[in-house]
Write a protein that binds this DNA or RNA. Structure first.
Lengths: 217, 217
DNA sequence: AGGGGGATCAACCGATCGGTTGATCCCCCT
DNA sequence: AGGGGGATCAACCGATCGGTTGATCCCCCT
């Protein structure tokens, strides 16, 4: 963290809005312990400047016209840049929150953060500590608790419905295979998918759920 | 069949209606080969006279006031009487048809039978051959084809419904046993009864039928 | 007093099921 | 060009199921 350079933390500001860049520089330059090495107006430029100037921390906006923030972060990670990236955005509901963190961002802060919060976050990021705004933190926890959260598709495919119809008639897997001109292995595969989609433990429960949902009957 | 007694068939007429008795006697006496030994007006009397007079054939009405025809037939069978019993009734839908045959009647004829049909039936009965009116014959066949025909009770017992509810939830036999505080053997017994009543081959089919009949859901 | 039905239980056994692993092929979207 | 989803298949295996036989107990009706 370049602590040997007078104990100051070197920074790069990456944001495509001049007003924001100026605002950040205006806040950081007068403060003790921060040195702004430069400003980038796009992702691509941010990568180039970071590699060249080697700042301790990059303050990165995610929505930029010339190269997205997430791609820039990923590129820096890939290149093994020493700089920590602290994401600074307007929205905490941004769909890029998780991708940014996955790409390698050390922290994620909202632009409406208080001055002292910003200072603390930059120092934390410089030390490699993760800093997240409360809203982002809770979203992260939720995302981790229900991994991937692919909004599980409940809908049975046409083939699965055909299999289930046979099951409701009391057909064995072998009979279903014969009637649908497929192998028993395939029938079993369909059934396991059906159990998963209907949250059923066996064919009897699957038939019950199917009737309750109007899939059968 | 007393063939040695001049080749004639000896008869006893048992009917509580004098008019019927006279009518039968009037038909049979003039005919060749028949000898009416006597007339009885009730079941009890018919048994007593048959045992005493030993006719070849007894023409028996089923509905008599003094001792029913079916009981008289059963009594004669029990006593090992040589006489064949030819039932002669008004109704071919009589609920006593089958009981009469089961009791030992050799033939069953309607009173509106033609004269020649009656003669043929008596001769057949005298030889021990079964003679049935067409309607009675078809009823017999039906009865034999669907033995006992106990109008199968489709209704699931309360316990069976409880078991089926568990099945619909995906419970295994073991789980059902635990939840209902019975053994797995009992669960299986209930299930087999359920399959029979619902005409289902397995638990899945049973659940389907139950939903269609409104037993579940 | 006997018969039928419901509920209960045991023991046995072949058949089927549910789950797992690993794979191929095709289609569609990005 | 790669990824995801649907459909297809094989092989393996422990668990469960369905069926059979035989039995007991209780209640209700005749």
């Amino acid at each position: 963290m370049n602590a040997e350079n007078g104990g100051t933390i070197t920074l790069l500001i990456a944001d495509d809005h001049p007003v924001v860049r100026d605002g950040l520089r205006g806040i950081l330059e007068p403060a003790d312990g921060f040195t702004v090495l430069g400003e980038a107006s796009g992702g691509t430029e941010a990568v180039e400047m970071t590699l060249r100037m080697d700042p301790d921390v990059v303050l990165m906006d995610l929505r930029m016209s010339a190269g997205s923030g997430v791609e820039a972060i990923a590129e820096l990670t890939r290149r093994g840049a020493r700089a920590r990236v602290l994401v600074l955005t307007t929205f905490d509901t941004d769909s890029d929150t998780l991708p940014a963190i996955e790409a390698g961002a050390t922290g994620y802060l909202l632009k409406d953060a208080l001055r002292d919060e910003l200072f603390a976050a930059i120092r934390a990021a410089a030390e490699g500590r993760t800093v997240l705004s409360p809203a982002v933190a809770s979203r992260l926890v939720t995302a981790v608790r229900s991994p991937a959260v692919p909004p599980v598709d409940d809908t049975l495919s046409a083939r699965e419905v055909q299999v289930l119809e046979q099951v409701a008639r009391g057909a064995s897997n072998r009979e279903i295979a014969r009637r649908l001109f497929i192998s028993e292995a395939t029938v079993k595969t369909h059934l396991i998918h059906i159990y998963g989609k209907l949250d059923a433990r066996d064919r009897a429960a699957a038939v019950a759920v199917a009737y309750q949902r109007g899939i059968l009957g």
